[in-house]
């Protein structure tokens, strides 16, 4: 429970200084002892970092904004692509095959056979992440949370399907494939990262947030 002291926490001391004038060396020394174990504590990237200009304008790692959709068509969510018979996300607009149904749930298929287009393949993705090896695109969309860290697989599949199906979606299939290959080579879905050309790194979570910012789901 909060103490009164928490609440009484004194006003934040803020100093706007462009001059760089600070106290004498000795007091700085005290202040700085043991510092710089982590020189940069937090960063917020502003500019676009991935993919085509159109989808990522205004994208920030926090994925709070819908600006990205101002100038491009937004894409369907993983949820739409995995239930093509209850709403949007028609696979006929892609070159891929969802496969046949293994188990029919309430009004929709909730388990697919392995006879659809494989996740790893020449026109899909290249890499070796064991989370997705041997599975089809549709099976990856249906992976549960603990089988698909950060739902990275589900989102990258949705992005690829959008890249093929939606005219004006900000990323090309090659853009999406490049993002996947980059993450796969840098550790994959579990604990991996994306390394941009400019040396900027995005965590898998941030890549997922980026893909979400290209989807129609507002909020």
């Amino acid at each position: 429970m909060a103490t009164e002291k928490d609440i009484e926490n004194k006003e934040n001391q803020i100093v706007e200084s462009d001059s760089g004038v600070v106290a004498g060396i000795e007091s700085r020394r005290r202040l700085l002892k043991g510092a710089a174990l982590t020189p940069v504590l937090l960063s917020l990237t502003s500019r676009p970092v991935l993919g085509a200009e159109c989808t990522i304008s205004g994208f920030m790692s926090g994925n709070v904004s819908d600006h990205g959709h101002d100038d491009c068509a937004c894409g369907f969510t993983p949820g739409a692509w995995k239930t093509p018979y209850v709403g949007d996300g028609n696979w006929n607009h892609t070159p891929f095959d969802p496969g046949t149904c293994k188990n029919q749930g309430q009004g929709q298929c909730n388990n697919y056979n392995g006879d659809g287009t494989p996740f790893f393949g020449p026109s899909t993705f290249s890499g070796s992440d064991p989370h997705y090896a041997g599975k089809t695109l549709m099976q990856v969309l249906w992976l549960s949370g603990n089988q698909d860290p950060h739902q990275f697989g589900a989102h990258i599949v949705a992005a690829l399907l959008n890249a093929y199906a939606i005219p004006g979606y900000g990323m090309s299939p090659a853009d999406v494939q490049a993002i996947y290959a980059n993450v796969d080579a840098n550790g994959g879905a579990a604990g991996g990262y994306y390394m941009g050309n400019n040396g900027k790194m995005l965590t898998v979570e941030q890549v997922v947030a980026f893909i979400q910012s290209t989807l129609c789901a507002y909020q």
Binding site: M1, D6, L44, S65
Partner: peptide, 26 residues
């Protein structure tokens, strides 16, 4: 349980809230 409150530093608050600002980049 019980609820736990902890002060957050102004710098971290700034970065966290900036991350949640729709038009920060703009």
């Amino acid at each position: 349980v019980p609820a736990q409150a902890a002060p957050e530093t102004p710098g971290r608050t700034l970065l966290r809230i900036a991350q949640n600002t729709f038009n920060y980049s703009l």
